[in-house]
Simulated scan of single mutants.
Amino acid sequence: MSNIDLSQLITPETKQARRRAETFAKLADLRWKRETGGISLEGGMRVNTSRESQAQIAASVQSIEAGLLTEPVDWKLETGWVELTADQILTIAQAVADHVQRCFATERRVAAHMESLGGDLLDVDVAKAFDDAYEVLMRAG
């Protein structure tokens, strides 16, 4: 039988630090889900924003700029097949880039706010904080 007091290994401070780390991880996971969860554009177009789709959109923009892609361009949105002009692809690319950047900026703002709080952060509604900060950034343009 060991004489080690396990209660001394898991201190209240250790528990608090673990809970804080879990809340920050929850925030990062939420940002990733929102970033890659798609966006809706005017006209009811729903655009996939997975990392793969982000890369494909960026490659299409490069192809347009290099003159390698001619219009109309067949594209599959979440809402179905469409033919897009080069300008529409550039508009989609801008909207996706704005969305992705807004998601990272939102995570950063919420994380900074959480960092300033004491305690274990159990009372922080991460989803609400993210949504509120995202909306503020969206209105700011």
Rank of each mutant, 00 (worst) to 15 (best):
I57C: 03
A59Y: 07
T91E: 01
K26W: 02
G38N: 03
I92P: 11
Q56H: 04
R102D: 04
G118Y: 04
V124C: 07
K26R: 10
W81G: 14
G118M: 10
D123V: 04
A21M: 03
V61P: 08
H113R: 12
M45E: 06
A21H: 02
T14S: 05
V73L: 10
A58N: 09
N48P: 06
F104S: 15
V124Q: 08
L68S: 13
D132G: 11
S50I: 06
T36R: 03
V136G: 05
R139W: 07
V96Y: 01
E13R: 00
A66N: 12
S63C: 10
T106N: 14
T23I: 10
A66D: 14
T36G: 03
D123E: 06
S60A: 06
W32N: 03
P72H: 05
V82L: 13
L6W: 02
R19S: 06
K15L: 00
C103A: 15
S2V: 11
E115F: 08
N48H: 03
P72R: 07
S2C: 12
K128R: 14
L77D: 06
R46A: 07
Q8S: 06
I4F: 03
E42S: 09
Q62S: 15
I92R: 07
I4Q: 05
R34L: 05
W32Q: 07
K15R: 13
R108I: 13
Q101T: 14
F104K: 13
V61C: 04
L122K: 14
I92S: 03
R109V: 01
D123H: 05
A58W: 07
V96W: 02
L41S: 12
L121H: 00
E71F: 04
T49Q: 10
L90C: 09
E22D: 08
S53K: 09
